[in-house]
Design a protein around this nucleic acid. Structure first.
Lengths: 355, 355
DNA sequence: CTGTTAGCGCTTTCAT
DNA sequence: ATGAAAGCGCTAACAG
């Protein structure tokens, strides 16, 4: 049995130290203008008691306000990014009474220029903190350097750029999620012979950091445990569904031995829809991310497993980390907060959607 | 791009409605003592604006305080219940400034009397809300009836009693988690012949609700898809490790055909340790819950999958539901908030532990 | 019934 | 350098 003791207030400390509440406040916040003697007296009292400020009273009285900027890809409804914005919006509602305002700047993830423009906007606005989804490494680094100079804290979500110095990162350990993808694929069908390995990006572009790392993780597993397995590496293009159809036709009908497939982008449904349409249900498919269209194919068993990464939570926690740092002066734990790698199947998907 | 509009305050509403802030407050909280005319005026204004109160200012000014009681099993360090208490403690810290205090009453989950005594204590204290882990159905129902009479809201965590009327339930869909256990077992090894099915309880007692439902889910899967598979149903006893050893010896050495096993209590490590010790690594094992000892066996591959249920989150959300209801007058969604059924493997376990 | 007032715990301004 | 005082948005007690 436990109960909670009465909370100590600034007034209590002031009385014990024989100074005024104002002085205690000055000591607590290192605002200066305190004599050595007073400071000592207050600190002595603080040592012997466990004072935690009432952050709500503090926020109410404070005239400080904070502006956060979010830089993320523009998206369509049902997209992966929508979930991240849900999380950001949830955090926004929770912190509005602390005078924290959030503005979102969207960019076109397939156009470098668009990303650069977004960066410019951010720098012009000089916010108190930034949440961003890194794009091309070099451009991102240029930008974060400038933020470093201006001492504006920033948080990465979704993917991570090694060279930068973010306050924190919330996202998946992509390499490991690729490794797990391989493991699930081989568990689902232990005697796999030939596997189609899909990635998804635009012509003339490179695959995203995220996707490259998943592929690396996948390859590592295969190297370790299934060197005998034949891999067909295939690239699909977001802009060109007809060509994708053609590519998959050639692949699957030209290689009848293929009995497994994995796709490292969030658009597993593109492959799943093809398999479904052509009744290729002997092929085990693994995909990533909880898009509505993916879920349909998980439920009808075209996709065996989806691996998910809680984008909603990434957005939420990213914003919370910024406000914990700025508003509540909390120590943020060093850098990488990997979100769990969730394994979703027909049997447990509904409980993730509800929650 | 979006930005957040200025927040509306009670004072603003009062001005627009041509009444005093006091009156607006009375309308907002149905405190009575308001003329029909004033009420109409205020409600008219409220219709046209989107007012959300500053709950922090409200809590600060309010003299109301709330006491919550938690009834849960006593436990040892590293136990399943410890994690639930972590979640409760986290919630407690968050709401202390709202004048909500939490007291925990522990009972011995293997002694009905102990549970009854805990109930008595609760009724004597007449708290504002109760969080409890149901024990025997009949006893629990007796108790919740009395809470219903006194109009004290209560929340279930961990397991659920159909006949009661809780504010909410946070826990797993046990039947489905049993079903998933079966699915994973058969996926891991597609040609299973004989399966050992373990439950774990004290002599002379019945298995917990939770365990029975998992078994039912498991059986359903087998009935549906694997009627040919032979099941060995075995009960272990928490009090009697020597006898368990004996039981497992007879089982595994007397039935060499057994190539799979599942255990529906949180103590999968008991079986895992046996398999490990006797080098029975051809047997695929599935277990439940993230006990430290289970995790060791997951990591060394003795256990193939652990199915987990987020006890920390159950505790946290349970307390939050009570305070949302009591303090913030939020509508709590009807009853069942199933927590996700997490699938843990060697490859993703670390990210769950960190998070 | 209603407006006014005091005050929750804290910050910030303003004299001193 | 320091204490006193005002006020954040809201509630609750108090006159009228």
């Amino acid at each position: 049995m436990k109960s909670i003791p009465e909370k100590i207030k600034i007034k209590d400390i002031a009385e014990k130290a024989g100074v005024s509440p104002g002085t205690v406040d000055r000591v607590l916040h290192n605002r200066g203008n305190v004599s050595e003697v007073s400071r000592k007296k207050v600190e002595e009292v603080l040592k012997h008691i466990d004072y935690t400020p009432n952050v709500y009273a503090s926020a109410l009285a404070s005239k400080k306000s904070f502006s956060l900027l979010v830089v993320m890809p523009k998206y369509l409804s049902g997209d992966y990014w929508e979930k991240m914005e849900f999380g950001i919006a949830r955090a926004a509602r929770e912190i509005i009474d602390f005078r924290v305002s959030i503005e979102i700047i969207y960019f076109d993830q397939y156009k470098i220029d668009s990303f650069c423009q977004a960066m410019e906007k951010v720098l012009k606005k000089t916010p108190d903190g930034v949440l961003l989804t890194p794009s091309l490494k070099s451009v991102t680094c240029d930008f974060t350097c400038k933020l470093d100079q201006k001492k504006i804290p920033y948080v990465f979500v979704d993917s991570f750029v090694e060279e930068a110095h973010p306050l924190a990162y919330f996202g998946q350990h992509s390499h490991q999620s690729g490794y797990l993808g391989a493991k699930l694929l081989f568990t689902q069908k232990s005697d796999l012979q030939e596997i189609a390995v899909f990635s998804f990006f635009h012509v003339g572009q490179k695959p995203s950091n995220q996707i490259s790392m998943r592929m690396a993780g996948f390859s590592e597993y295969v190297m370790e445990k299934r060197t005998g397995c034949k891999l067909h590496r295939v690239t699909l293009d977001a802009e060109n569904p007809d060509q994708n159809e053609e590519t998959m036709r050639n692949l699957f009908f030209g290689n009848k031995g293929i009995d497994g497939a994995i796709i490292f982008s969030s658009r597993a449904y593109v492959v799943a829809d093809f398999l479904k349409k052509h009744n290729l249900n002997h092929i085990t498919l693994i995909g990533y991310d909880l898009l509505d269209k993916n879920i349909v194919r998980l439920k009808d068993n075209t996709i065996s497993y989806l691996i998910a990464q809680r984008p909603e939570e990434q957005g939420y926690k990213g914003i919370r980390a910024l406000t914990d740092h700025l508003v509540f002066k909390k120590e943020i734990k060093p850098v990488n907060h990997y979100t769990p790698i969730d394994i979703l199947t027909q049997e447990n998907i509904d409980f993730y959607l509800e929650f």
